[in-house]
Amino acid sequence: MKRLIVLITLVSIGLVPWLWGSATLLGINLCIWGLLALSLNILYGYTGLLSLGQGVYFALGAYGAAWAVIYGNVNFWGALGAGVLCALGGAVIAGWVSVRASGFGFVVVTLVTALICYLMALSFDGITGGEDGMSFRAPALALPGLALSIQNLSVRYYLALGALLAGLGIVYLVSKSLLGLAFRAVRDDEIAAASLGYDIVQIKLYAFVLAGAMAGLAGTVWSLSKEFVRAGLFQPFGAFLSAQPDPDPLIAVLLGGPGRLFGPLVGTGMLLALREFFAGVWPQGYALALGVVILGCVCKLCSAR
């Protein structure tokens, strides 16, 4: 019976564009922002590193893909690879510096990185498009034997769904692996982990780079499916500057339960549902409700401990 329910759920998720067309755009958003939250979960949930600048790698992924298409005229897979590589490269550089700081130092360094990246993106608006952003034409998704236009809503949906499934797979595999154990060892007690012979800095760097690449994948899919990028993606807290902010990965992780495989996805789903609910009634109410939810979550989290 249980198996049947799971099967039906999976099939209906797969058939959303046909069964429930009006939810397709929402589904795409859920997949993309869920993937971003998933990446933050590697850092915060599994490794205990609180980053407030995860959006940077999302933005780098988005821009990597856009630049590859605009300047390199690459095909779809090239753009996808360029986006992830761009985010990965950024994460290696920023991570190398950041993971050496601990506690608040790490939070501050990730914030500084994000702010500097945002200012640079605004300043070099010749290549980033600044706050206006840049449109581009995404290449068709080429599979052996067929080329699917990204303008097609269902193609976009399956692309986002595929990326999310890949992300879930990676997180699952990592959490079951020795590396995942090392992440958790660092989270629970750095000193104890170090005394067992783990290289703390290196393990943190692995987590940082893995999370960065995954955020980059989310950003790449975002830019390829919107065929658009803008400098505001880099902005730390940018999500809170508008009345209906994008689902913030950190809040999604907190809501869904840090360190759980499907937690970030559930959190993102709750945020999106909350946003859709408020969008029609009272747009400003969303962020207010969000603040209350955070306080509620955090206070409950503490009393539970």
Binding site: L50, G103, F104, V107, F240, A243, L254, Q284, A287, L288, L290, G291, V292, I294, L295, V298, C299, L301, C302, R305
Partner: peptide, 24 residues
């Protein structure tokens, strides 16, 4: 006495609420 990161998140929540109340 709690995890400093938790306190950080509490102030983050306060920030969001104050900002939205001001907007309203």
């Amino acid at each position: 006495e709690r995890d400093p990161l938790t306190s950080l998140l509490i102030t983050f929540g306060i920030m969001l609420i104050l900002q939205q109340l001001a907007a309203i």
